[in-house]
């Protein structure tokens, strides 16, 4: 007997009377009057920064204004001026040393500051290896809560909800930004 068969037969042997899946009808999840406003508040609470891109402003100028010192920008977005392209690097390691990674998010969640970033680039390391991460979000894509978010997303193979910069409190419960991944996250809302 394979281990798979063994485990499944053990489960059936010890199995319990099946219990029904609950109805989701009793659940009325939180909704906000203004999702954008709430997203901005929550995104800041989780340590992120937020910029609203005004009509007619150049996104590259905006990124520069937030990161004037940045020398290496990595992005596979065609409209972003970048030195490195996660689509064309031969190996993820080449992205090490990136000051600012720029990516596009598909769904933003007002209740928790999460933004869904699917892997649309060849090397997703750009999401984590960059010192700072810029996530561009369309204001039309902000939803109230995770239930709405999960009903909208599709995962091409990998995708991540990112809620602010990498953080840890593992040393004496003191909150520190920038544990292993980006130390700073800027949400640009267009």
């Amino acid at each position: 007997m394979t281990s798979k068969q063994n485990i499944l037969s053990e489960i059936r042997k010890h199995g319990r009377q099946p219990i029904e899946m609950p109805s989701f009808e009793t659940l009325s999840p939180v909704r906000y009057e203004d999702c954008l406003e709430q997203f901005v508040v929550t995104a800041r609470q989780v340590g992120g920064r937020v910029a609203l891109l005004e009509e007619g402003t150049d996104i590259n100028a905006l990124i520069r204004s937030f990161y004037p010192e940045a020398s290496v920008i990595a992005s596979s977005l065609p409209f972003v001026e970048a030195a490195l392209d996660p689509d064309t690097v031969a190996d993820a390691r080449e992205l090490n040393g990136t000051d600012v990674g720029v990516v596009k998010g598909e769904v933003a969640v007002a209740e928790n500051g999460c933004v869904w970033v699917p892997q649309t680039m060849k090397e997703r390391a750009v999401l984590f290896i960059s010192e700072c991460l810029v996530i561009i979000v369309d204001r039309k894509d902000i939803v109230n809560n995770m239930h709405e978010a999960y009903s909208r997303i599709d995962n091409p193979g990998y995708g991540c909800f990112i809620s602010g910069p990498s953080k840890t409190a593992d040393i004496a419960q003191a909150l520190v930004m920038g544990a292993q991944a980006a130390r700073d996250v800027l949400y640009v809302i267009v």
Partner: peptide, 16 residues
Amino acid sequence: TGQPSTTFTSHFRGPR
């Protein structure tokens, strides 16, 4: 931890 979400919620649906 009293956060509204962990910073990363990563979904792995296949190899890179």
